[in-house]
């Protein structure tokens, strides 16, 4: 396998094969949790798969971190945030058709979640899907814990209001 790779120096071959073996394992183990997390964060399956793939391409080009799953989760959350920025611009200039892969029985809540501001949506997804603590969410979103509590409270209150109507 080492000889098949078109790379000149043996040292580089060893390092690369070792790294690729590890990335292969990480990809196999982390793909599903990350796609699920990205799906919940973006509420768009196709975008979620794109985000996770881009994250892994960037991840493969970097030195392996100590805690790869947490590192990847942070990358996915950051990419989802970039996705919101792009979507905001898209909505400003285009008439975007919402994705059609919403499961009928969860339509109502998911549609209501989509209408929430992006920060509230992210906080709700990380709290009620990923089961993260307020402090962990604060670290991922790079904001104080009080802000996360406020985002969660406002998000749930908005949903309560919408569900009552």
């Amino acid at each position: 396998m080492v000889r098949d790779l078109p790379i000149e120096t043996p040292e580089i071959v060893e390092v690369t094969v070792a790294a690729w073996g590890t990335i292969e394992e990480i990809y196999r183990a982390q793909w599903a949790p990350l796609v699920r997390l990205a799906s919940v964060l973006t509420t768009d399956r196709a975008r979620a798969e794109d985000i996770v793939h881009d994250v892994f391409v960037r991840f493969a080009a970097r030195p392996l971190p100590q805690d790869a799953p947490s590192y990847l989760r942070q990358m996915v959350v950051n990419s989802a945030r970039d996705h919101y920025r792009r979507v905001k611009v898209e909505h400003r200039f285009l008439h975007v058709v919402p994705p059609s892969d919403v499961i009928p029985e969860v339509d109502e809540i998911i549609i209501l979640v989509r209408r929430l501001p992006s920060r509230q949506r992210q906080a709700l997804a990380l709290r009620y899907y990923a089961d993260l603590s307020v402090d962990q969410i604060a670290e991922l979103l790079d904001c104080p814990s009080g802000t996360v509590k406020s985002l969660l409270h406002r998000g749930i209150e908005a949903l309560r209001r919408e569900l009552a109507t």
Partner: peptide, 30 residues
């Protein structure tokens, strides 16, 4: 108006259902 806990429960169930059909392994190897 549903209660706070009720909304929390519905939200968690909706998120779980939304991602339920995502397979456990990637469709292709890295």
């Amino acid at each position: 108006r549903p209660s706070y806990t009720e909304v929390e429960g519905r939200l968690a169930r909706s998120f779980d259902a939304f991602v339920a059909d995502i397979p456990d392994h990637p469709p292709v190897a890295w």
